[in-house]
Each structure stands twice: as structure tokens, then as C-alpha cells.
Design a protein around this nucleic acid. Structure first.
Lengths: 158, 158
DNA sequence: ATACATGCAAACATTTTGCTTTGGC
DNA sequence: GCCAAAGCAAAATGTTTGCATGTAT
């Protein structure tokens, strides 16, 4: 489940830009053959405006899911968005799967409190990129990407 | 579920040393108040000898679980071992939770095939340690540790 | 008109708990 | 003998699917 924490370290979130990105993604989804439905629009907006990974429940219960789409529908849309390469899934040690938008040229890593589950995006320059290329050549794996999370006790829980 | 891959890049696995480590862990567990049971002994051995993360099912169905301990028992032992700081849990994008031994001074990162689920330990010097300290000071989080996985298509699946 | 998308309910997989019995100390 | 540990079965949680109906194209 999602834990909101709008700390002072948050980047400024430009709502207009978010809308533009959502619209662009919708266009791309439509070109890929998806239909323009309220659920798809809602889900894209929610993903674009969330600045942290969201679980299926987070999305299905979001007030921004104005269509009131069913959990199964949200699930199926997420599957498609993943196939399209718009989002990736990640696990954050609770039972749910989380989804997060893939931003070209920008990769988010996360900081999670092992006690309260708080999730925070890390705006760091990830030192793993170079290593990733190297692993690709030495192991023969293709299309590599990585997932990096830091776990620990947040100030409140410590 | 576990996928075995003893590739040529595997380190040599010293069975005698593994036994010694398991015995040492058992001692530490006993000092911490746990009783010496066959299940505990088996599970420690299994974890020590596995050179990759194991799921609850992997352990509960292992032929090395000679006591034939129930899944619930294995589960409860794992919880205790985690509380004692002997193992950590991690998620590898299938539905199960994986457990892996914490080796003092050595941290394993993993390479996972998104197609067949194959898991491979990476024997790399992880470039994240320094960053971890820095995050600890800037965010106020305590007792940080990290999880790093690379996902991609293994040579067979590509 | 034809697929694709949806809702609802049921099936699944896995983890977690309750309670009684067993066994380590 | 006492309390932790185990076994078994049921509950809980979250994901996934089947099928009849609705809707974008």
C-alpha cells in the first residue's frame, strides 16, 4: 500500500507537463492498437502524476480513477502498458507488485522504510549504468535493466 | 521456484567450510534462545549450501529438509532467522519471497532472466556501498542496506 | 459489425495464523 | 514440567482468469 510523504526534498511537480506526458503516452498506446478508454486515460494520468511506484490496489482505489474501473480492468491495462514498455514492475518487500513509469534517460531508485513501508524516490545519479553494460557483454544477457532499492529505518521509525 | 544453473563462472563451493558455517550459525541461534531442532539444522544447511536465494517452497520441498518439516514450520524458522539478522528477504519478480544468507562483508547482487526466471549470483564489486553511506547521512535513514538486481534475457531465451 | 475492453465472480498461489500436540531443555 | 516448536488445517492476501456484456472503432 502507498504511503504518501511529500517531504521538502520533493522536486517541483509540473502538472501541465504531466498532462502533456499522459497525452503523449495515450497517443502512443493508441498507435499500438489500444482503444481510447476512460480507464486507460485515468491509469496513465495516475502513473504520470505519482512520483513513486504504485501497487495495483493503489491505482484501483485512487480517487483519480474517475471511471471507477474494476481491479481486473486495471490489472489488464497494466499488463498491456508493461508489454508496451511504458511501465516496469518492481517488488518492494510487501506482498504487492508495484508499477512505475519508465522515463527515457531517467531511472529512479528507491528508499524504503522497513518499518512503516514509506517509499521515497532517490534523485541520485545511479552508479550502476556502466556496470550494466559490462555485465551485458560478460554474461551474454540482453536488454538489461536493473532495480536498486535501499532499505532501512526512516527517521520517524528509528 | 528455483532454477539451477551451475555455470562455469561458479565459485568453488567448499562443503567443509559450508558445514562449519552452518554449525556456527546454529550456535549463534541457540545463544539467541532458539532450540536445537532438526528443522533448524536442516534449514541452516540448506541456506548455507544454496548459492542463490531460495523461496519458502524451495526450502520446504528440498530433499535436504530431511526432517520433512511442514511449510508453516519452515516459514516460522525463516521469520526467526530474519529477526536474528542471519538472512534477508528479497523479491525477484515472481510471486514468491526469496531468502538469502547474509555473509559478513560480502553482498551478492543478482542477474535474473525475465523469460525463464533463471537466477545467477553476480560476483561483482558493488559500486553502491559508498552511495549507501551518503544516503544515510542525507536522509536520516538508519541501518541501510540495499538490494540490486539486473533483469534481462539470458542467452538461451534471447 | 467486429473486436477489444469491462465487470463480476470464481480460481489460484502464496503467505500467515489458530490451535492442539510434541519435544527440547 | 514448562514453554518453544511442529503439524495440520483454515484464513487471509493479492493476483489472475472465465465468461457474458458493453463499447470504441
Amino acid at each position: 500500500m502507498l504511503h504518501h510523504h511529500h517531504s521538502s526534498t520533493c522536486r517541483h511537480h509540473d502538472t501541465a507537463a504531466a498532462g502533456k506526458l499522459a497525452a503523449e503516452l495515450l497517443d502512443r498506446a493508441r498507435s499500438a492498437g489500444l482503444r481510447r478508454t476512460k480507464a486507460l486515460e485515468n491509469i496513465l494520468s495516475i502513473l504520470v502524476e505519482a512520483h513513486q511506484p504504485l501497487s495495483l490496489a493503489d491505482i484501483a482505489e485512487s480517487p483519480d480513477l474517475t471511471s471507477g474501473a474494476d481491479k481486473a480492468t486495471v490489472y489488464r491495462v497494466l499488463i498491456k502498458l508493461e508489454e508496451l514498455g511504458f511501465i516496469r514492475r518492481l517488488g518492494l518487500h510487501d506482498r504487492s507488485t508495484y508499477y512505475t513509469l519508465i522515463h527515457a534517460g531517467h531511472h529512479d531508485d528507491y528508499l524504503i522504510c522497513t518499518q512503516c513501508g514509506r517509499i521515497q524516490s532517490l534523485d541520485i545519479s545511479c552508479p550502476v549504468e556502466a556496470l550494466e553494460k559490462q555485465i551485458e557483454t560478460t554474461t551474454g544477457f540482453r536488454k538489461l535493466y536493473h532495480e536498486l532499492e535501499f532499505y532501512g529505518l526512516c527517521p520517524k521509525c528509528a
